[in-house]
Design a protein around this nucleic acid. Sequence first.
DNA 1: GTGAAAGCGCTAACAT
DNA 2: ATGTTAGCGCTTTCAC
Lengths: 332, 332
Amino acid sequence: MRDVAALAGVSLKTVSRVVNDEPGVSDDVRTRVQTAVARLDYRPNLAASNLRRLGARTGLIGALVQDLSNSFSAALLRALEDAARTRRTGILTASLDEEIHREQALVHDLVTRRVDALVLMPSSRSQEYLAAELRTGTPAVFVDRPPRGVEADSVVVDNAYGARLAAEHLLDQGHRRIAGIFHLPQIHTAAERMRGFTSALTDAGLEPDPHLMVTGVATVEATAAAVRELLDLADPPTAIFAARNNLAVGAVRAIAERGLSREVALVGFDDFPMSDLVDPPLTVIRQDVPRIGRTVADLVFQRIEGDRSPVQHVVLNPSLLVRGSGEIPPRR
Amino acid sequence: MRDVAALAGVSLKTVSRVVNDEPGVSDDVRTRVQTAVARLDYRPNLAASNLRRLGARTGLIGALVQDLSNSFSAALLRALEDAARTRRTGILTASLDEEIHREQALVHDLVTRRVDALVLMPSSRSQEYLAAELRTGTPAVFVDRPPRGVEADSVVVDNAYGARLAAEHLLDQGHRRIAGIFHLPQIHTAAERMRGFTSALTDAGLEPDPHLMVTGVATVEATAAAVRELLDLADPPTAIFAARNNLAVGAVRAIAERGLSREVALVGFDDFPMSDLVDPPLTVIRQDVPRIGRTVADLVFQRIEGDRSPVQHVVLNPSLLVRGSGEIPPRR
DNA sequence: GTGAAAGCGCTAACAT
DNA sequence: ATGTTAGCGCTTTCAC
C-alpha cells in the first residue's frame, strides 16, 4: 500500500479511500491510484483493515458439520451459503465425523479466526466449553442436534415424532414384527428416533422385541450386515425402519441382495437424491433441509446484528413421504 | 491481551510466549498467565498475530466449486479437507453455479483474505484475470476443468476418453441408435465428453444423428423432458449416454416413467451414492473423486511450501463400471 | 527468564 | 479534497 501511495504520489489515506470506494477523492487522483494499484498488483489485506476498523466483522461463519460429503450436511451448508451470500459472508467449514475432541479444537480455531458466528452440528456430549466463547461475543447456533450444558439457539426437527410417523405407518399396513436400525445411542438424534419408534410400538400394544432393535450402526456396510442377520432370524421382521439416510442405503442393499425388495417393507429417515429411483421407491421421513438451513441463517444473522433476546429453540416437524417401499404388506 | 498481562503482572511479550507455547517462561509465570487467560476469556487474534509474523500463512485454502450440494463437489471438498486437516489448514468454500461473474468476485475476495492457495473449478471462459493474483504469490490449482488464458496447475480426468468408453460399450452391445445428453457446450467437461462420444460413433462407421444429440441440459427436470422427447421419436434411440451425474438421474426417471427400464440401455458419467440401487443398477463412467482430491491437495501444498517448478497438468483416466443398465441389448 | 520499543497493513480521528 | 498521527492486537528484535 505504501508503494502504491508512492507511485501515485499521494498519501496512504488517499489510497485507502480509493480502495474502499470512499467519497472525497477527485477523479484525477482516483484514476492515478487505480493505475498504481493495477501496476503493482496491489491487493488490500482484509485482516489488517479489520484490525483497525471498529466493530468490524470478518464476514465469515464457521460451520461444523458431521460429514461434508453426506447429502444432509452438504444440502444444509448449501442453504446456509445461499443465505450468507446475500450478506456478503463466507463459510468456513469442517467435518467432525462424530469425533468429540475435534469439535472443541475446531471451535477454538474458529474463534481465534474471529468468525462472526458459529454453526454447530455437535458431536460431543456436552458443549459446556462453549460458554466462554459465547461470553466473548461469538454467537452460536446449533443445528440438527440441540445444545447440552450451554444456552444457545438451535434448529432441530422433532426426531421422536418422525420416528413415530414411520412406526405408525408400518403398523397401519398391518406389520407387527418391525425392526429398527439406529445410529450410536449417545447421538441425540439417534436416541430420539429410538424413543419415538419404541413408544409407537408399545402404544400399539406391542412388546418391543430386543432382537429387532439394532443400535450403534454407523456405516452402510454395518447396516447391510445387520439387516442380513435380521432376515436370517427364525422369525424375521416383515418391516424395517432405518433411522438415518446411510442406514437406509445399507438396508436397501441387503434386502435387494436377498431378493426381498417386494417382500420386506422399509422406511428410511432423511431423504436423499436418488431415493425415489431405487426399487421400490423408498418411503422416507423427510426433513425440509433448505428450510432448516434458512432458519439457521436467519438466527445467525439476527445474532450477528446484535440481537440479545432470549435463546430460541426452533423445532420443525418432519413428514412422511410415501413412495412404495413402506407400503408393502406383511408376508402371509 | 493487555488485560491479561496486567492481571498476571507480566509484559505483553510474556503473554505472547505463553499463548504460543514458546520456551523461556518459568512454570510459575506460565500458570499465572494461563489463569488470567481463563479468567478473562482471552482468545488470541490470529489475524493480528499473522500480521506481524513474517512469512505467516493464514492456514486457509479457498475452494470454489460449482455446487456444494452436488455429490461430486461435496466428495471432492471432503477429500481436500481430509488432506488439509493434517496440515492444520481450513477450507473456505463457495458455490459458483456456472455463473461466470461470481468466480472473479470470489477469487478477489479470497485473495483479499490472504488464503494460502486457491482451488478452482472454474465457470468462466477464461481466467486471464488470475495472472495478477498468481503474481502476488497466491498459488492456484484447477480441478475438473483446465485453466484457460493462464498458466496454473490442474487435475482433470480425460473426459473425451471416458465418453468414448461409454459409447464403445454401448456399441459393443449392438446398439446403433445411441442418444447423448450433454450439459452446456461452453463448459469444458461437457464439450470434451461430446467430442469423445461423437468420435467413437463415427469411428464405428455411424453417422451421428442430430436428433439424438441433446446439449445445453443442466437440470434433472430438463433431462427428463429431453429423454421423453427422445423416446417419443418415430425411430427412438435404443441406448442413452447421460454425460453428467444429475443428467443420469433425469434419464433414469424418464425411462422409468415410461416403463422402459429394461428396454433402453443407459450409461451415466460420474458415479453417485445410490447408483447401484436403482433399477436396473446404473452403469457409469466413474471418476476416482477421492484420488482427484488428494492429488489436488498434494499440488496445493507443494506450491504453498514454495515449490516454483513448472506448471503441472495431471490427467486421470476414468473407468467403466458395469452394473446392468448399460448392458441391455438393443430392441430387436 | 523477562521486558521495552518498533512495526506488520491498515483505518479512525483529526487536521489542513 | 487530501494528509498526519495514533493505534488496532500482535510479534519481532534486542536489551537486560
